[in-house]
Design a protein around this nucleic acid. Structure first.
Length: 574
RNA sequence: GGCUACGUAGCUCAGCUGGUUAGAGCAUAGCAUUCAUAAUGCUAGGGUCGUUGGUUCAAGUCCAACCGUAGCUACCA
């Protein structure tokens, strides 16, 4: 039995769960459910990422304390994810004692080993709000093309990248005050010292090839020190032995994985160190989006390795979700919250669709409305569920819902059984696209078999009734093995099927044993078809739900962050 | 600008280390069927495999250039 710890990136506590988050958490959950189905120990933890300026400002805007804000969002996030069947063992928070403990521990270890240095940094400062301004919180004229009202790090108009200090006519996006330059000591992790370690680490099988490529690029370009401190006021953990300095949110965010797991270990009496000591033989898998590769594949393993923790076994990187070919964005009206989706569709539809498109790479994934509807209706209902539906009637009507005592077509059955190994390997790699394709090919094969045998003809002949039972029992058994193969992807459909099949929980092991002389439960509708207009209604509702927010931010004239930017970065990782 | 990935039928994609007339599903058309949630089965049309050049007995499959698309160019809560 393998011992596996799995994480999804930590959603940031400044907004609701949306389909972009779900892509990641569903992908993770499928992998986790597969591992558990195979009989491995698989602990899945996540948490809300709570610290930083954004939460601080949002709390202020809402007139509540940060802790009240993050508590509220934590409850919301967890409820949304749970309704999608995401099977965390623990969904915690980075604003926790455990997280502070590990942050301090890691920091002091790094510091004591000479991997931390301080440097004087000059930054824009908002004199009204008395706080330093991150690049994103400054707007001004582009130093190259002169376009007005550009963000502090790059120009949307001409694409130039620059330092916020170079902006002309800078304005604080928080208070509209004119920022001044001010100096402060910052704490840096000496990343360049980890160059050799990283060069080796990224080729140890922990990275997808295209990710390793990108990392090599960064490393070859020369690593720079990583600024891990922020000045007060800042919502976060104070840095030990420093005056009014706080850990930069991206420092303690990944540590949230440790904290969440530790919290779970305490409650379940599991040895944390078994998983995290440097020579652990357990596995650690992170699932993240490609936007946060640097944090998880450069900083995180470096920090872990140099503070006596093991490094991740594998980082699974996925691409971004687009809607009908466009970036998910509120202004384009292609933004759908998890809760909005649930007003219209069963989670299994989305889980199935995403699984049908996911491969072990970081390519972007498009959710196309017609494609979505067609795959659900053709594959799940028309092909798969249809097998059970068309077989069941005969058994119920003529055979007291009882399966034949032996397999009518052992070779056909064996063919389905023989796929087990390949399908498992695809799951393991994260190639659910192949899993789905193969299962649907088998479903086609099964429908062909039923069409050829035409039990609806045979039933008319009194002498051939036994054949009908045999054929339909094949149909049910084949349906059963196929739904078992898809169990990690469509848990609720599987559960309804298990009830109908009346033979307990499907496991990877028992799925390849046919049911013989077995009594089924009463058949109920397993899955409904969906309509394109429902999907369109959902998109429209999504646009309406979010239009309000757009207005409010533009009216205030001081959005702390462009709203679309928010979305792209809403799934950070912790 | 630099780097990376991708560009195969209307759509989503298979095509591994180069080797018979380029495949599947969906969509479309016709036929069959009616057990099944207007589901299923059979058949057909549809692609100069982004462009050009090269290596080779042989290239969608390797190389180069070009065109196009997307992304990255790390400290942003």
């Amino acid at each position: 039995m393998r011992r596996i710890l799995v994480t999804s990136a930590l959603p940031y506590a400044n907004g609701s769960v949306h389909l972009g988050h779900l892509l990641e958490h569903i992908q993770t959950d499928i992998w986790v459910r597969f591992q558990r189905m195979r009989g491995h120990e698989c602990i899945y933890v996540c948490a809300d990422d709570t610290h930083g300026t954004a939460t601080m400002l949002l709390a202020e805007q809402e007139g509540v304390g940060e802790e009240a804000l993050i508590d509220r969002l934590h409850a919301e996030h967890l409820a949304d994810f749970e309704r999608f069947g995401i099977s965390y063992n623990n969904y915690y928070s980075t604003h926790s004692d455990e997280n502070q403990y590990f942050s301090n521990l890691i920091y002091t270890r790094l510091r004591d080993r000479g991997f931390v240095y301080t440097k004087d940094v000059e930054q824009l400062y908002d004199p009204e709000r008395k706080m330093f301004l991150a690049d994103r919180n400054v707007r001004g004229d582009c130093p190259r093309c002169g376009a007005s009202n550009q963000p502090g790090d790059n120009c949307d108009s001409c694409g130039a990248t620059y330092d916020a200090r170079e902006l002309k006519n800078p304005v604080s996006a928080i208070s509209n005050a004119t920022p001044i330059l001010r100096n402060s000591d910052h704490y840096f992790v000496d990343l360049p010292k980890f160059t050799d370690f990283l060069r080796e680490y990224i080729h140890n099988g922990s990275q997808q090839p295209e990710v390793a490529n990108k990392l090599t690029e960064w490393i070859d370009g020369g690593l720079r020190g990583w600024d891990i401190s922020r000045d007060a006021p800042y919502f976060g953990f104070p840095i030990p032995d420093a005056d009014d300095k706080y850990f930069y949110v991206w420092m303690d965010a990944p540590i949230g994985y440790l904290a969440s797991f530790k919290n779970w270990c305490t409650k379940n009496d599991v040895d944390f160190d078994e998983f995290w000591r440097a020579d652990s033989t357990c596995e650690v898998h992170h699932f993240i989006g490609k936007d946060i590769i640097n944090f998880h594949c450069l900083f995180w393993p470096s920090v872990l390795h140099h503070s006596d923790f093991r490094t991740p076994t594998k980082v699974h990187v996925h691409g971004m979700l687009t809607m009908n070919g466009e970036q998910m964005s509120k202004s384009r009206g292609t933004f759908v919250l998890a809760s909005t989706y649930l007003d219209y569709f069963d989670p299994d539809y989305l889980r199935y669709y995403l699984a049908a498109r996911l491969a072990p790479n970081s390519a972007d994934l498009d959710l196309g409305s017609e494609d979505f509807v067609s795959r659900v209706n053709s594959d799940l209902v028309g092909k798969l569920v249809n097998i059970a539906s068309r077989s069941e009637g005969f058994l119920a009507k003529h055979f007291d819902n009882t399966l034949a005592s032996e397999l009518a077509e052992p070779e056909l059955w064996q063919e389905f059984v023989d796929e087990e190994e390949r399908i498992a390997a695809w799951y393991e790699e994260g190639d659910t696209r192949r899993v789905v394709r193969r299962v649907m090919e088998l479903a086609d094969k099964c429908n062909q078999y039923l069409a050829n045998k035409a039990p609806w003809q045979l039933i008319k002949d009194e002498n051939r009734r036994d054949e009908v039972q045999g054929i339909c029992s094949m149909g049910i058994n084949l349906y059963r093995i196929l739904i078992a193969y898809l169990k990690p992807i469509v848990p609720s459909l599987t559960q309804r099927s298990e009830e109908f099949l009346n033979a307990g929980d499907l496991t990877w092991e028992n799925a390849t044993q046919p049911l013989l002389s077995h009594r089924l439960n009463k058949f109920g509708r397993l899955l409904n078809r969906i309509e394109l207009k429902t999907f369109n209604a959902m998109i429209e509702a999504g646009a309406q739900n979010t239009a309000v927010e757009d207005d409010s931010t533009s009216e205030s004239e001081s959005p702390h962050i462009e709203i679309d930017d928010f979305l792209n970065r809403a799934s950070r990782g912790g």
